[in-house]
Design a protein around this nucleic acid. Structure first.
Lengths: 231, 231
DNA sequence: ATTACATATGACCGAATCGTCATAATAGAC
DNA sequence: GTCTATTATGACGATTCGGTCATATGTAAT
C-alpha cells in the first residue's frame, strides 16, 4: 500500500485557490484516496458512491459537493495516475543519449512506477480496459492519448529520419502495450517481487526488438500507411 | 460483427444431453450472444440481467433458468473465448518445427483470432482486467492460467534445455502480453485495419529477441530464480 | 458577537436491479 | 388426443443505487 502525498487538483471554486489549508482539500483527498483503494479492491464499476463515502467517512452529500458524479472522480484519478507516470518517464529519460537508452528509460520508468504502486497500475489497467468498450466515459481516452504522445515525443528525439505519425503511434503502442501487457499477465501469479527482476532481463529483448522494428520502419515507411488502407 | 456457430456447453441438466435439438440450447445461445455483444458495447459490469434478456428477447426468468447469476454467464463466455483462442493457437502451431516457427505461430494465431473477433478481444481483455481486482469472480483466473500453460507447453517442445517453471511462465507472459497489450492500445485509435500489418513486422523483431532471450535463459538459468528471492 | 461564506450532512425520492416463484406454454412419449 | 417433464414467463418484493436539498456546522473576517 502506497501513501499518496499529492492528489489531483480540484476545479477552482473560489478566488482563493489553495491560499489556506482549506479543509475542503483534505476532504477531497479523503474521497480520492477512498475511491482509489476501493477501485483496486472491487473494481471501478462495482464501487458505489455509498461505498466511497462510507470508506472516506464523510456524508454522501459531501461527495456531490466535490464531484458531480462517479465519472468525474474516475477521470480525475486516471488523469492523475497518468500524470504521475509521465513525470517518472520524463525523469528517467532526461539523460537519454540515444534511441536505445530512451527505450530502456521508458520501460524502466514503467517498472519503477508500477512496482511501487499496485493500486495505480490497477487503475491504469482498468482505465485502459474501459477504452475497449464502446460506451465508456466520455473523454477518458484523452489522458491515454497524451501519454502515447509523450512517449512518441521522447523516442522521436532520437529518430532522425522523421516517421509518419501513424507509424510513430504504433511504435508507442508497442512499447507501452508490451510493458503493461507483460505486467498484467505476470500479476496473475504472485510473482510480484520477481517481476522486476525478470523484466530487467526481458527488457533487453524488448529493447532489441523495438529498435529493430523502428529501424525497419524508418527505412521503409511502408505502402500500407497510405490513406487507401483506411476504412 | 462475427457470427458465432458454437456456444459454450450448458451444465448437463438431463440424461439426454444434446440428443435432440432442444430449444433450450437455442435459447441459451440467444442469451450468450446477447451478453457477448452487450459486454462489448457497455462493459461487463454495466450490463444488467434485464439488458441481456431484453436483447435476447426472452423473459427474465429464462435467464435464471439457464444461469445462476451474471457471474456464471461471464465465466462461461470467457472460458469459451479462451477455448476458441487455444484451438486457433494449436492449429497454427501444429506444424511448427522449431522455436522460431512456434513463436511466430503463437503470435500469428493471436492476430488471426482477434482481428476477426473484436467482441471476443474485448471480452478477453475485460476478463484480464478483472484479474487485477482483488474481489473478482472466483476462479476467473483458471482459463487464463490454462491459456498460459498451453503457450508454455508449445514453446517447451522446442526448448531442449528445460527451463525453470517461473522463467517459462514469464516468457509466456511476455509473448501474450505483447500481443494483447499492443492490440489494446492500438485500438484507442481506429487503426483496426492496419493493426495486422503493423504487428506483422513487429512480430519478426519480437520473435528474434525472444529467441535470444530464451537461448540465453536456457544457458544460464539465473541465480535470481532461487527460492530465496520469493517473499 | 455577529456576519457572511464555505463546507458538510443524511434523510429522502424515484429509478434500477437482483433474484424468486407460481403459473403458462411447449414438446415428446404414449 | 392425454400425460409428463422440460422450458419459458413476467409480476413481484426486497434491496441498492444515484442524485437532490433543506439544513447544520465550521471558519475567517469584521
Amino acid at each position: 500500500m502506497t501513501e499518496i502525498k499529492i492528489m489531483p487538483d480540484p476545479r477552482p471554486r473560489t478566488r482563493k485557490p489553495g491560499r489556506h489549508n482549506r479543509r475542503a482539500l483534505r476532504t477531497r483527498a479523503k474521497l480520492l484516496e477512498a475511491a482509489r483503494t476501493l477501485f483496486t479492491e472491487q473494481g471501478i464499476e462495482m464501487t458505489s458512491i455509498d461505498d466511497i463515502t462510507r470508506r472516506a467517512d464523510v456524508g454522501k452529500g459531501t461527495f456531490y459537493y466535490h464531484f458531480t458524479n462517479r465519472e468525474e472522480i474516475v477521470k480525475d484519478l486516471i488523469d492523475w495516475v497518468i500524470e504521475q507516470l509521465l513525470a517518472v518517464i520524463d525523469e528517467t529519460c532526461r539523460d537519454s543519449t540515444d534511441l536505445k537508452t530512451a527505450l530502456e528509460g521508458v520501460i524502466k520508468a514503467h517498472v519503477t512506477f508500477f512496482s511501487n504502486r499496485w493500486e495505480d497500475f490497477v487503475l491504469f489497467f482498468q482505465g485502459r480496459s474501459e477504452l475497449t468498450i464502446e460506451q465508456s466515459y466520455e473523454g477518458i481516452e484523452t489522458p491515454f492519448l497524451k501519454y502515447l504522445e509523450r512517449v512518441e515525443e521522447i523516442l522521436e528525439r532520437f529518430i532522425y529520419r522523421k516517421l509518419p505519425a501513424p507509424v510513430m503511434r504504433r511504435i508507442a503502442c508497442a512499447v507501452v502495450g508490451l510493458v503493461s501487457g507483460y505486467y498484467s499477465f505476470a500479476a496473475i501469479e504472485s510473482l510480484d517481487d520477481s517481476v522486476d527482476l525478470t523484466i530487467a532481463s526481458l527488457r533487453e529483448a524488448m529493447v532489441a526488438s523495438l529498435m529493430r522494428f523502428i529501424q525497419e520502419a524508418s527505412i521503409q515507411p511502408g505502402p500500407e500507411t497510405l490513406p487507401a488502407a483506411a476504412g
